[in-house]
Amino acid sequence: MPLINETDLWPRTKRALVPADSPDERTSPDRPSAQDTSRTAQRTPISENTPIPQSTPIPENTAISQSSALHDVLTARRSVRRFREDSVPDTDLAAILSLATSTDRQMWPHGAVQSTPQAWLVSGLTGTSEVRLRRYAPGQDMAGERPAGEFTDHGDCAVLAPLAKRYVPAPVAVLICAEITDSGGANYTQALLRASAFGYNAWLAAVAAGLGGSVHGRSSSEVTRIVRRHTSTPARHLFTLVLGHPAEAPDSGLDRE
């Protein structure tokens, strides 16, 4: 879990698991409660130990903090079902997917190339613009730096518009795919594990960046056919992550996952 400082794991987890009727145990004197967002909204600098607030966009080539406090991440990590129509800048998406890619490479240094997660982005599911399909292509790891990546536009893909009903209308849906060589063997199992880990890491990175999202673990043969038809790749859909700016406050009915 790349967003959590390892030294915070046990004490933060203990506080997070204490019953809600013991607020003093859950909230340290210098940290606001889960319902009190006034102080977190005032965070402005992007530093090694400070989560990126929702009002602050991620500057290009700026690494997302890997040491956000566990309590903050657990409190903010909610499954969002309603999003604003605001688009998510490519710089934010690139930073989020770059972190997920870097983490995947650390977790699977000897993983099969065929099971490497692919991120296909679908924009326009909110109905405010045409539905477009793009692929995120990660860069090569550099010493001490996360891989920079770029997006390849595969054009208008209106056939993907029903995804808004299948998942949720959101500015961005990330279709996580992989090229699977054996449908029921070790390569398929590894691809599923990597795709789900990639999706959750990208979700946590988005939360640290002030966005919201929800994950959908079920694969879709229909999405697989569409992606293959429009991109001429053997990719198979395995996992979906939707991202955007939450339309509601954290305590207004959002689901914890």
Rank of each mutant, 00 (worst) to 15 (best):
S219C: 03
S219K: 03
E145V: 02
A178V: 13
V159W: 02
A206Q: 03
T231Y: 02
A178C: 03
A178P: 00
A191D: 07
R194V: 01
A205M: 09
N187G: 15
P147S: 14
L163T: 09
C177V: 14
P234Y: 04
A173Y: 10
V174M: 14
T231W: 10
E150F: 10
A161Q: 13
L211V: 13
E150C: 07
E222Y: 09
K165V: 10
H230Y: 12
A191S: 08
G212E: 11
A209N: 08
G184S: 07
P162S: 06
P234V: 03
A164Y: 09
A186W: 05
K165C: 04
K165Q: 08
C177I: 04
S232A: 11
Q140V: 12
Q190S: 15
H154R: 12
R218M: 14
V215F: 05
G155D: 01
M142Y: 01
N187M: 10
A164G: 05
V172C: 08
L160V: 02
F198D: 05
Y188N: 07
I176C: 07
G199L: 05
V215H: 04
G149M: 02
L204D: 12
A186H: 13
E222P: 00
L163D: 00
Q190D: 15
C157F: 02
F151K: 02
S219H: 01
A197M: 08
L192I: 12
A208S: 08
R218E: 11
F151E: 02
A235I: 03
Q190F: 15
C157M: 09
P234N: 08
V215I: 13
I180V: 12
F151Q: 02
V207L: 12
V242R: 02
Q140S: 13
T152K: 13
A164I: 11
V159R: 12
G144W: 02
V159P: 00
A148V: 08
E179Y: 04
Q140N: 10
V227C: 10
T240W: 06
A209K: 07
G210R: 07
A206E: 01
I226R: 04
A235Q: 07
E179T: 08
E145Q: 07
G213W: 01
